[in-house]
């Protein structure tokens, strides 16, 4: 147990100093890994803990990114202030759509969430309300400004993103062990029993959806300011599939697993970039192989043993 902790700490330290030894390209790869890690952790609440088949997470991410982009470009509000605003918008959006569909089960929920992400993308492409700029998207988004310091290069973004990732990990690991987190896992394991124990299933599922969406929306704002231009292409169904895969390959419901999953799905293919066209072929094969040999993901969720005080 102690050894494991030491290794964890070593890895974290290695990660945090790595930008000093890496060139811009690989730092940028790590930044992307970090963004996907945070996104996947937010999906993990819905898919991993609560077991809801959500394959449309890019929709929430898109709502957040577009909210931030529109407000930033129109009213010049700094991105970091817009982060929570983007999160709230994404959360409200999630609340509205979750209400009617939350009672759907398994694969039906899966197809509905795919439908939602596609509807959002089509709406963005069609320049809905004249706000989203159609296929061109929105450009000229500001870079984040941290107390007068402008985050610009991949090196800067690395520290911003991994700072956010640390906060996310900290909060979500607290959440995992909270009463609420345990209730979600209970719903995943046995919905009927959970309901029987007095858990309001619809309410808990909706809240899981909203929390996941808020987090995805916030990171959407950061993504928008990193790219300085966003277009509907960045939020298609395929993005949702990637997030879905990260969570399941890493180990749904396990924070460490999800982060490792982001490294494998986002970071590793970069090593094969020189194979160009054959790259995705290998990627597809690897997905199958991974599931065959580690069907619960690399880190399956740890079975927790809670000490119950028996009177």
């Amino acid at each position: 147990m102690k050894n494991k902790k030491i290794i964890d700490v070593l890895i974290c330290v290695a990660l945090f100093v790595s930008p000093f030894f890496l060139n811009m390209y690989w730092t940028d790869v790590l930044v992307n890994v970090g963004i996907y890690a945070i996104l996947s952790l937010s999906l993990n609440i819905i898919l991993g803990y609560c077991g809801l088949f959500q394959m449309g997470h890019a929709a929430f991410y898109a709502v957040g990114a577009y909210t931030a982009a529109i407000l930033n470009v129109k009213y010049n509000i700094p991105i970091l202030i817009l982060m929570p605003v983007a999160g709230i918008f994404a959360g409200i959006f999630a609340f509205i759509i979750a209400k009617p569909i939350i009672h759907l089960r398994g694969d039906y929920l899966l197809i509905v969430t795919i439908g939602i992400v596609e509807i959002v993308r089509i709406a963005l492409v069609n320049n809905v309300f004249g706000l989203t700029g159609g296929a061109n998207g929105i450009f000229g988004i500001d870079r984040p400004n941290v107390f007068g310091f402008i985050v610009k290069t991949p090196f800067h973004f690395f520290y911003l993103i991994y700072f956010l990732l640390s906060i996310t990990v900290l909060l979500f690991s607290r959440f995992e062990n909270s009463k609420f987190g345990r209730a979600l896992v209970y719903i995943k394991e046995d919905e009927v029993a959970a309901e029987g124990s007095g858990i309001n299933i619809a309410k808990y599922k909706t809240i899981a959806f909203v929390i996941g969406a808020v987090w995805a929306g916030m990171i959407g704002a950061i993504f928008a300011s990193k790219m300085t231009i966003i277009s509907p292409d960045s939020f298609n169904f395929w993005e949702s599939v990637i997030l879905f895969t990260i969570v399941l390959i890493g180990g749904s419901g396990n924070i460490k697993g999800v982060i490792l999953g982001s490294f494998l799905i986002i970071g590793l293919p970069e090593l094969f970039r020189d194979f160009a066209s054959a790259r995705m072929l290998i990627f597809g094969m690897a997905m199958i192989a991974m599931m065959i040999f580690k069907s619960e993901g690399i880190f399956p969720p740890v079975r927790k043993i809670y000490k119950i005080a028996i009177k």
Partner: peptide, 22 residues
């Protein structure tokens, strides 16, 4: 578990290695 952490560090090392300009 440790094996995978090991793998992860290998991944890092290889990234650092590949990143070296030749």
């Amino acid at each position: 578990m440790r094996k995978f952490l090991f793998l992860l560090s290998i991944l890092f090392l290889s990234i650092c290695f590949l990143a070296n300009p030749c």
